[in-house]
């Protein structure tokens, strides 16, 4: 009805078709904008801003506690603090394969993952198994008294031992 009325009042001009096309495009564009805006805001909404996860930095005792050959497994922070040649270093205990917590087997002198059978030596290198990478070395710092701070979120190059 309305279209007919309009047609009566104003005969269809050459611009009619392009005007309709334009309006249709404006409508479609508005829909696309709304969808894109909704998608972005929802994605942003879904991203947690505050994480209640255990702190990555922790105290690990004194450097004197780690003579060469000691391996201490810090269960709470998923890390090994190891007394190596001429100093101390720390390894992440999270398997590089699929994130299971590895275990140190003192009798074999090896670190093993219970999930898929990866094995590492005490330097973190892969001995065998499906793990694609060595266990990362994580940062160890010592203050003037030799108290150690370990940060599991900071990965340092392999072999960078904290000298005594």
């Amino acid at each position: 009805m309305r279209e007919a009325d309009e047609g009566m009042a104003m005969p269809p001009g050459p611009n009619d078709a392009s005007r309709r096309e334009f309006l249709a495009q404006v409508g479609l564009g508005a829909c696309a904008l709304t969808i894109a805006g909704a998608a972005l805001t929802v994605l942003d909404f879904m991203e947690p801003k505050v994480l209640f996860e255990p702190p990555t930095e922790f105290k690990a005792g004194n450097i004197q506690d780690f003579p060469e050959g000691t391996v201490r497994f810090d269960e709470e922070h998923r890390a090994y603090i190891i007394g190596g040649q001429g100093g101390v270093f720390a390894l992440s205990a999270v398997c590089t394969h699929l994130g299971c917590i590895t275990r140190y087997h003192a009798d074999e002198g090896a670190i093993a993952c219970p999930c898929h059978g990866s094995r590492f030596d005490v330097d973190g290198n892969v001995v065998h198994g499906p793990a694609p990478r060595a266990l990362p070395w994580i940062e160890v710092k010592a203050d003037a008294e030799g108290n150690l701070m370990v940060d599991t979120s900071v990965v340092i190059p392999h072999g960078k031992v904290l000298k005594v």
Partner: peptide, 26 residues
């Protein structure tokens, strides 16, 4: 989160996949 059971297995319909993970890179 601190103690991984040994062995630790996925639901049965993913165990084929988990078995593959033993042989191939993730």
């Amino acid at each position: 989160p601190l103690e991984t059971p040994n062995p630790s297995k996925a639901p049965w319909y993913f165990l084929g996949l988990q078995e593959l993970l033993h042989y191939f890179p993730p």
